[in-house]
Design a protein around this nucleic acid. Structure first.
Lengths: 343, 343
DNA sequence: CTGTTAGCGCATTCAG
DNA sequence: CTGAATGCGCTAACAG
């Protein structure tokens, strides 16, 4: 094969002609309508013709008619943060099982990009959406919801009160962070610092707030040591840790808002010829796959992203097949402290 | 907002009515047809109506007419291997710039899943495909190519000879592996072992072959020490390394077919109370983001996946906008040895 | 410069 | 049990 023949794709009409039936019949056997039973023998003829012509239904045409595209969309900040591929994978696996395709969008947590994705979603007419919004509010989703497209949110939508139409899967970030901070204090890792991304990522502020609260409660003598990196990435963690090391008080331990930042921090610590955890202990959040593989293995909070994705997808499909209707459901997922050697 | 109003989405007809023009005019201003100029004032009226009604074109309907969906698809083995998110991100960023959406498929490198994805692609009628096939052959893509859908392959398609209609971006895996193996031998890391995934992942065999060839050439006295893990994952690397450690000859260094396997191997080595690189040196392949962040930082071969994705996407869009036609182009991408501390 | 008309491929009434 | 006719929302001739 080198010069592509470029023959037009066969349509139901072609199949019908080949099978000596009407196009309607082809549609009927394709959709297995129980109402109009097809004689088993014509059915076979049609199936044979389909196979013969390599007919594949046209999703666009079908979608135009049925208002269903068999596509769902997922909105995440950045596929490059290992937490999200796992999340996506969870979604994808259940979508796949339902015969759905998945369109993935990266928003980088920027409101402008998030909005652009939303617009894209409207154009492509997806059947459902799973979103991990950073800046979006409930109102931004109104056109989608108004159009009857179910939306499952990972985390909590800032403006979504009770009776909100959004399903959500979330975990108690603040409690998890508090527990981890408590553990670090128990181990006497003081002074205890925290590194986080710039505050505009409101979404993750629960962790920083928890840090400040627990610290104030349990170690009122220590002033909070909160360093900010630009992004919730390894680079952000590295920069924040450097700032911390250059500061007046060297922390005995650092709680990073996520594992990537923790990894960046570890690099900065090593570069300063210090040792983890003997000089400075490090803890993260997420338990991405590699956390366990680091040297030393990273103490962190496991979120089980793949399971989160599966749960979100399950809720979405429950809406899509009509088995759940009415007000949005909120499902809280478990987290787990993973105590390893880094702290 | 709690009870969704569920009003039907506005169509061009609605917009036309609101603007007091015909539906055609709406279509014309939307598509900026140079041919039929619209008077600037009606144009404004239409735009206002669009904005007012929050009209968004229906991709399915448009696609039915234009045979363009503004969707491209990417076929990768597993988004959970950090190499691929970066690759995807590269694709996504250029697709985004062109106003295209991206559907992502995970094939797990299994032929059956790969075929299923291909079928899905036909249904959803994507405009172009970027594929990282493991088991697929050129023939499997025939329906796509025959339908005029351009396909860019990452790597080389086993059966694609000269004059093949496939564009491809690839790098000289074997040369890169040979170079790395050569380096390890130069450093006297002998005996030198390799760990790789089971041989059915033909795609990666270039690396194992290079290992065997260079070893045979330069160290004829050492028998090849090739251990197989089931999957090209951290778990596979761990298992293979364990097997190696349980074997009769303990290697002085291990070359892993990819970074995830290398990380698994490092864990196994540490568990055996051995030290990297003093007892056993470790090298990988890919240079995923975390490779540099490991302790010790991983010596590996950089593939620059994001750049690969961008390149593949660029070639795809060159086909889509007609700026490139004819036989498939093959673009070889550079790799780079990243010598760090693990070997 | 703008309106009329005709399908794209399919699911779905309604007749036979 | 099967076929003919209709329209989903849109673009693209073709008239006016």
């Amino acid at each position: 094969m080198s010069a592509p023949p470029l023959r037009k794709r066969p349509t139901q009409d072609d199949v019908a002609r080949a099978a000596g039936v009407s196009q309607t019949v082809v549609s009927l056997v394709l959709n297995d309508r129980a109402a109009a039973s097809i004689s088993p023998e014509t059915r076979q003829r049609v199936l044979a013709a389909i196979d013969d012509l390599q007919y594949v239904p046209d999703g666009a045409a079908r979608g135009l008619r049925t208002r269903k595209t068999l596509i769902v969309a997922s909105l995440i900040p950045d596929i490059t943060n290992p937490f999200y591929p796992a999340f996506e994978r969870g979604i994808q696996d259940v979508a796949d099982g339902r015969g759905y395709d998945l369109i993935a969008y990266n928003t980088d947590g920027q409101r402008e990009k998030e909005l652009r994705c939303l617009r894209s979603l409207q154009r492509t007419r997806v059947d459902g959406v799973i979103a991990t919004p950073f800046q979006l509010t409930a109102d931004d989703f109104a056109p989608l919801i108004g159009g009857g497209v179910p939306v499952v949110v990972f985390g909590e939508l800032v403006t979504a009160g009770p009776g909100s139409p959004f399903d959500s899967v979330f975990l108690d970030d603040a409690a998890a962070a508090a527990e981890l901070v408590g553990y670090l204090i128990d181990r006497d890792y003081l002074p205890l610092a925290m590194i986080a991304a710039s505050a505009e990522h409101l979404r993750r502020e629960g962790r920083a707030t928890a840090y400040q609260r627990v610290l104030a409660e349990r170690v009122p003598t220590q002033a909070p040591l909160l360093a900010r990196g630009d992004d919730p990435t390894e680079a952000g963690g590295y920069a924040a840790m450097r700032a911390l090391l250059a500061g007046p008080t060297r922390p005995r331990a650092v709680f990073a808002a996520n594992d990537m930042m923790a990894m960046g921090a570890m690099v900065a610590i090593r570069e300063a010829a210090l040792c983890v955890p003997d000089d400075i202990a490090v803890a993260g959040f997420d338990d991405i796959t590699v956390a366990r593989l680091l040297n030393p293995p990273l103490t962190t909070v496991a979120q089980f992203p793949e399971r989160l994705g599966r749960q979100a997808a399950a809720m979405l499909f429950a809406r899509l097949d009509g088995s759940v209707t009415g007000a949005g459901q909120r499902v809280e997922m478990p987290y787990e402290l993973m105590i390893r050697e880094s702290a």
